[in-house]
Amino acid sequence: MSAGSSEEPNLTPFIDLFSVLVCFLLMTAAWLQLEALQINIDPSNPDAPAQSQEPPPPPPLNQVKLSVKLYADKVVLSENQAEKAFPNSNNQIDRARVSQALLDWRTKFTEQKDIVLNSEKDVKYGSLISMYDILISSKWPDVAINPN
């Protein structure tokens, strides 16, 4: 292009292309970003389906039964018969304290994998999911929900 000439590239095809692309992408865009939490069913539950035809092996004698029970106003962590309650703060689970207790369990019971999540009838679904989320983020990936 010589100096002083006023030739410009024809931008119309670019705009045509971009318009079509923008329309296509706007129509196919996933505006709703959802995720899912895959849950496990408590195997000790009588309604739970059998994983195999063979009976499950008996648990080791020294294995501790860890469970979390949700109430409307508190969370109770049970280690065999010993229980520790964490009252809710502002109608929500005290995430910091419960997480710390679960992390302590993780360091204490390094071999243990399973943990059972029970809940009372008056508990809200949001609290159940919140507790499940806390358990997974506290390095307890194998959480089983008791459906009874």
Partner: peptide, 30 residues
């Protein structure tokens, strides 16, 4: 819904388990 009583969810879970649907995924808002 976030405010649904857990008992309602458990009823559906029991139905699903009885019918052999055990891979239950709870839909959550990230």
């Amino acid at each position: 819904d976030v405010n649904t009583p857990v008992e309602e969810i458990k009823k559906v879970m029991r139905v699903l388990m009885n019918e052999g649907w055990t891979g239950i995924n709870f839909v959550v808002d990230p």
